[in-house]
Amino acid sequence: MTSTVAVIGLGAMGLPMATRLAERFEVRGFDIAAERVALAAESGVTAASSAAEAVADAEAVLVAVRTGGQLNDLLFGEGGLAQHLADGAVVILTSTVGTGGIGEIAERLAAHGAQLVDAPLSGGPVRAGEGDLLIVVGATPDALAIARPVLEQLASALTIVGDKPGDGQALKTVNQLLCGVHIAAAGEALALADALGLDREKTLAALTAGAANSFMLGNRGPRALQAYDEGGAEVLSRLDIFVKDMGIVGDAARRAHLSTPVAAAAEQLFLLGEAQGLGALDDSAVIRVVAPERLS
């Protein structure tokens, strides 16, 4: 039975997940930023002075990093976590890093007596703290049995998509294709409405009430309308995250020899946004790529 969970990476998602898990488990947290560790400690998470200390004797190790390179460095770099994991521990990968290399990571962890649970998630920091995430999982039945209590504490929708690591990343890649395209399309649509002289708020209300609606239009639309305000919209998901994720989509499509022209066009909008200095803004700021200034 899982009783101790280590959370490595206490950023925008890692911290609320650690806090949520601390309601049920003993949780040890570590981040390279000391202030994030201090915030976690205020929320019932035991502060660890190192990642190695955090994972000692932990049955489950939840990892919240940004890229596949960071994941490899964390596990197998100098002083990597793999050598400090408890025998039989599961490493729960919550990040979207793509399918490339996941099988090799699982094999290398197995050599250290650990198992990989591929569990990328969606939902944002607020929903993470409420246990309201969508999590898709690829894992062996044995690994899943250990990780399931942890995942169920975090998820309102837990979908087991396959029995091997990489399956979760594959489905998340498909998910991100749609999310990225929908965000970009919402920005273009609202920019067009602005260019045509329509009332932006009334336009958004009409669109979300009809067949043109999507989750991303309803969720990002109001924030896109704030993109021209001083400071822009509250940052709930950075634009440069979709630079990464749409790159993952493109890589996966090329490996599959599949043409994805709509996804490629959306990727270019996010890349342009990053080049224009919008990367740290909310991803709804992609509207400013097609319409740098408010037109009406």
Rank of each mutant, 00 (worst) to 15 (best):
G9S: 05
M13N: 05
M17L: 01
A18W: 12
R20N: 11
R20V: 12
A22W: 15
A22L: 15
R24P: 13
F25W: 14
V27N: 10
D31F: 08
I32R: 14
I32E: 09
A33W: 05
V37Q: 09
S43K: 15
S43Y: 11
S43I: 06
S43C: 13
G44Y: 11
S50Q: 12
A54P: 06
A54D: 05
D57F: 10
D57Q: 11
A58K: 03
V63N: 06
F76L: 15
E78P: 10
A82F: 04
Q83P: 12
H84Y: 05
I92R: 07
I92Q: 14
I102Q: 07
H112Y: 13
E130S: 09
D132L: 09
R148M: 01
V150R: 05
Q153I: 12
G162K: 06
G168N: 01
L171N: 09
T173V: 00
T173I: 00
Q176E: 03
L178A: 09
G180Q: 02
V181Y: 08
H182Y: 06
A184P: 05
A189W: 04
A195C: 08
G197Q: 05
L198H: 09
T203R: 13
A205D: 08
A206F: 14
L207V: 08
N213H: 12
S214H: 00
F215G: 06
G218R: 07
V235G: 13
S237H: 10
S237R: 12
L239A: 13
D240I: 02
V249A: 02
A253N: 00
A253L: 02
L258I: 06
L269S: 12
L271T: 11
L278W: 11
G279K: 01
A285Y: 09
V286W: 06
A291Q: 03
P292H: 11
L295R: 06
